[in-house]
Structures are given as C-alpha cells and as structure tokens.
Amino acid sequence: MVNFGKIWTRKTLIGLGLGQFLSLLITSTSFSSSELARRGIDAPTSQSFANYVLLAIVYGSILINRKKWLKAKWYYYFLLSFVDVEANFLVVKAYQYTSITSIMMLDSWIIPCVMFLTWVFLKTKYQIRKFAGVVICVAATILVVFSDVHDSGRAGGSNPIKGDFFAIAGSTLYAVSNVSEEYLVKSGSRVELMTMLGFFGALISACQISILERQELRSIQWSSGAVLPLVGFSAAMFLFYSLVPLLLKVCIRVA
C-alpha cells in the first residue's frame, strides 16, 4: 500500500506550490514578451537588463551586509551569467518570429536537457518512468516544429521555423543555467548566487545592448502600452529568479 503520509509532506507541498507559482510567472513573462513583439519592439537583451540590475542591488545589499567571502569562484558566476543572458536573448527573440503557443510548448525541451546534464555532471539517477516522460517531451517538440514547418502560413509569426529553433536553443541554454544553479546552490549561498548572477548579467547585458540594440532603443516610441508589459516582464523575472534557487533547495531536501 502507498503511504500518502510520506509523499504529501510539508516540504513536498511547498515544492509543489512554488513550482506552480513559477509556472504562473513564466506565463506572465511569455505574455509580456508576446505583447512587446506585437508592438514591434525588438530589444530582447534590454528586456532582461532591469531584472539583472534588481538582482544585483537587492541581493548585493544583503551580501555586503553579511561581510562574507564568496564561496565559489567568480568566473563560475561569470560563465553562468553569460549562458543565462544568451538564453533570455534567444527565447525573447523567438517571439519576433513565432507564436506564444509554440514557444511555451517548446519550453518542454528543457526537461530532457536538464535530465541529461544532471545525469552526466551531477550523477543523478532516474527511473524508467521519468525516461518515458522525456520521450513524450521530445516527441511533443518534434510535433510542434513539424506542425510549424507544414503550416507556416497559419502558425503565427513572420518565420515560425526560425522562431522555433531560437526557442529550442534558448531552452537548451536554460537547462545549462538551471543545472549550474543547482550545483552552486548545493555548494554555496542563494544570496551569493543571485548577487553575482545579477552583477555579471547586468554587465554582459549592458555590453550586448550597446553593440546590438542601441539603434533599436533610440527608434522606439515609448508609451504606456509598451512600458507596462516591460515592467511586468521585469517584475515577473525578478520573482522567478529569486524563487528558483529556493525551489532547488527544497527539492534537494525532499529527494
């Protein structure tokens, strides 16, 4: 007989609730990105810049107040931040070419990528039923791309196939970022992780904006219809980044 008392523990319920709230935040960022793309705003790196600045300021203040040395090497955080910035760039860029439905379905590609990376680098062991779930995710990804290839005229977007591959590439980088965060959370501090991710993420984003998006930002005519989705995107991203390490710690303890 299944002992539900051991399954539905307080930590499990907290993890489940956090996971659902994070899904809601992801939906909010997707809707905001889609709305900005609909208004002709094509500045994917600029969208994420405010989130990194908020992380650096909020968590950096806490870290400075604690007066502790970094537990992990700074260049680990730099590499993580670079991957994370480019993941955000690719996924947000995908909204310029394909529909929000395709992108949110293709986000499932992150699941097999995370499982593969944790199996190789973190030595995580998985059961057969989890591999069955991976097969379903991969099959769904293939079907979405196949559907957009053969129905590009109604798929929504100027170039659905290009957008799909941007979304897949971004999801792959998100997997690398999430697995790296799990490793750093295990060996370090959540506040340290958020501070360094915000600091290097803001620095890398600023450099990328000056190279790729300076002209685009000058040509944008800002209005309340454009500012509100951008503010909503930044707020949802900040909450998402703040809660993901917490979810990882809860899940690690449950496991």
Score class of each variant (00 low, 15 high):
D164T: 08
A87R: 07
E86D: 03
C251P: 00
A167Q: 04
I209K: 11
L184F: 01
L143W: 03
V185S: 01
L230E: 12
D148N: 15
N88V: 02
P229Q: 11
G157D: 10
W119I: 11
I62N: 04
L90D: 03
F49A: 01
F165A: 08
V85N: 06
P245W: 05
V138F: 07
I161A: 08
L212C: 08
V53E: 03
S81K: 11
K125L: 11
S81A: 14
V244I: 08
I128Q: 07
G40N: 06
A206D: 04
F78A: 12
W69K: 15
A139R: 00
P160F: 04
T101E: 07
Y59R: 03
T124W: 01
L36W: 08
I57R: 11
V227H: 05
A139M: 12
G17D: 07
N3S: 12
Q221N: 15
V58N: 04
I62K: 07
D151P: 13
S46I: 02
I100M: 12
K130C: 05
S223K: 14
I220C: 01
A72C: 14
D42L: 06
S158E: 15
Q47I: 12
A50N: 06
A132D: 04
R253E: 14
Y183M: 10
F89N: 13
P112L: 08
T98L: 03
T98M: 05
K125Y: 05
L55N: 09
S158L: 14
V92W: 09
T45F: 10
G19Y: 02
N3W: 02
V191I: 11
Y76F: 14
L24G: 05
D164Y: 09
A175D: 05
R66W: 05
Q127I: 14
F89Q: 05
L247M: 05
S99Q: 14
V231A: 09
M115H: 03
L203A: 13
C113A: 15
W109D: 01
F240E: 07
V120E: 06
S219D: 11
D84C: 06
M1S: 13
L197Y: 06
S28I: 15
C113Q: 04
A206N: 10
Y59N: 02
P160M: 07
M1F: 13
L247P: 00
K123T: 04
G60E: 02
C251V: 13
C113N: 03
Q221T: 12
I136K: 10
S99W: 07
S224T: 07
G5W: 05
L24H: 00
R66F: 00
I62S: 06
K125Q: 08
S46T: 12
V114M: 14
L246I: 15
S187N: 15
H150K: 14
L184R: 01
V58Q: 08
R253V: 13
K162A: 13
G225A: 08
V191H: 00
L24R: 02
L55H: 06
F166K: 03
I14N: 06
A169K: 04
L54T: 01
G19D: 01
T45C: 04
I161M: 09
I62Y: 09
R218T: 14
I168Y: 07
F121C: 03
Y95M: 00
V185D: 00
V179P: 00
